[in-house]
Nucleic acid binder design. Structure first.
Lengths: 131, 131
DNA sequence: TGACAACTACGAATGTCTTCGTATATACTT
DNA sequence: AAGTATATACGAAGACATTCGTAGTTGTCA
């Protein structure tokens, strides 16, 4: 179940990377995040720390002291962020037409047969719901 | 028919606004663009000019002298830009899963019954094409 | 011909994002 | 107790993006 988070700012690319790590691994201190990110992003420790400080200000994460260090926790859910970003993108690029986005995504050719079937299922269930 | 334009940079928001205007109105001088954009963006003349100069450097538009002024023309098609941006977005937000993007877009609830039918048609035609 | 209008070119201010470096405090170890 | 390791906080540099202001050129017209 998604909880709408209308107030939080859209994360930047770097912030999104960090949020993904927190979503996957659960609450972590900075050091653990650095290690977990080492293969994707070779960020220095203070880089990650800085992002987390900014994200704390923005409300994207929360933190609790644990001894000398801090434990950071994602303050928004993955589904919420994705929904916000999709909405935003639809407006920026397609002037609000979700249809054009879907058609564009399907046209990338990166959707497998199983996924197509799943999508068709969703479309049909939505068709059923509408007046 | 789309022609792939792998080399051109992704336009920024402002550049996209200008490209849309060129796509809709065809080749224009700066003055005409300013006028056409007046209701959406209240940009000063030199602002629009600056964008067009940058876009010329980037290869997003081309220009031809016409008397004292220049006529600007979009150097990429709308479908190409949209496809690039969708691809990019799918990677940035969904790690390459077009499926997740489609599901997210459908979940916004902004797709009408007719559009759903159209999407289903596309899905079915894609299903037919795949092995 | 001299003033005015329109156009281009250039540079600069501001804001955001990414990325570290340095300084400082705190704990552990010998 | 001194030195090393680990943490945080702060500041700053470099890249883009957005937005104009100013300067300079060229053409028009009374």
């Amino acid at each position: 179940m998604r909880t709408r988070s209308t107030t939080l700012p859209k994360p930047t690319d770097a912030e999104l990377t960090i949020l993904r790590c927190l979503w996957r691994n659960g609450p972590c201190p900075v050091r653990a995040l650095c290690d977990a990110l080492k293969d994707q992003q070779n960020w220095g420790y203070t880089t990650v720390l800085k992002f987390l400080q900014i994200m704390t200000e923005k409300g994207l994460v929360t933190r609790l002291p644990e001894g000398r260090a801090h434990i950071y926790t994602a303050a928004i859910g993955e589904a919420d962020v994705e929904a916000d970003m999709v909405s935003d993108f639809i407006w920026r690029v397609f002037q609000g037409s979700a249809r054009k986005l879907v058609l564009g995504a399907l046209a990338t050719g990166d959707v497998s047969t199983e996924e197509l079937a799943e999508i068709k299922g969703i479309v049909e269930s939505l068709e059923g719901k509408q007046s």
